[in-house]
């Protein structure tokens, strides 16, 4: 339907259409639901982890930088509005100044960078394996590096720990997040094959 719908009147700078708003809301719902469902054992040191941050990487990798970042911004908005949308039913304004507030806010640039890197790296290679690897790499950089870059200093400000110490805390979550990034890369790749959409 979309083809015919947009066939006419396409402007030079594509503006936000209803379908973009819908996609943003749907991926926000996916991120929230992945935090609500019971944690999954991904086989890392026997620590069950929630899939919520996987949803964050997925949003960037599937929807693209702008819409992916907006889907995460929407989750942040719902959190601030007092809805229990974070893993373990957390929510409310109090999350932001807390020790994990930076990670939450970091999702927004994290999804953006993930989306950007997927666009740059993962659309060119011919081989399936190379594209999967590139998508996973994008999730690693966007979903971990960028998110931690905001999360770690925030923890340090919020808790009075030194930067080095909050980095050590973050390292505890690194193995789980790394596995999630790889899974997110595979999922995003398969989703895009099953249902390709224009990335923005």
């Amino acid at each position: 339907m979309m083809n015919a719908h947009t066939a006419r009147g396409r402007t030079a700078r594509r503006r936000m259409e209803t379908k973009d708003v819908v996609l943003i809301a749907l991926f926000c719902a996916i991120i929230v639901v992945l935090g609500l469902v019971p944690p999954v054992d991904l086989g890392v040191a026997g620590v069950p982890i929630t899939l919520q941050t996987l949803g964050v990487m997925l949003a960037g990798a599937v929807l693209g930088p702008v819409r992916g970042a907006l889907a995460c911004a929407l989750v942040v908005l719902l959190t601030i509005a007092g809805l229990p949308v974070l893993a373990g039913g957390r929510g409310g304004f109090g999350v932001i100044p807390g020790p994990t507030g930076g990670y939450l806010l970091g999702w927004i640039p994290g999804a953006f960078v993930t989306g950007l890197l997927v666009t740059v790296l993962a659309t060119r290679p011919r081989s399936r394996l190379a594209r999967q690897a590139a998508t996973a790499a994008a999730c690693l950089v966007g979903g971990i590096l960028v998110v931690y870059a905001l999360g770690v200093p925030w923890t340090s400000v919020s808790t009075g720990l030194s930067l080095r110490q909050s980095t050590v805390t973050a390292l505890y979550f690194l193995p789980g997040d790394a596995v999630k990034a790889v899974v997110a890369g595979l999922v995003a790749h398969n989703v895009r094959q099953a249902y390709p959409i224009e990335r923005r």
């Binding site: 708003v21 819908v22 943003i24 809301a25 749907l26 926000c28 719902a29 929230v32 907006l70 929407l74 908005l77 719902l78 509005a81 809805l83």
Partner: peptide
């Protein structure tokens, strides 16, 4: 977007 997210 907020309404749709709450709905979905």
């Amino acid at each position: 977007a907020v309404s749709l997210a709450l709905r979905f």
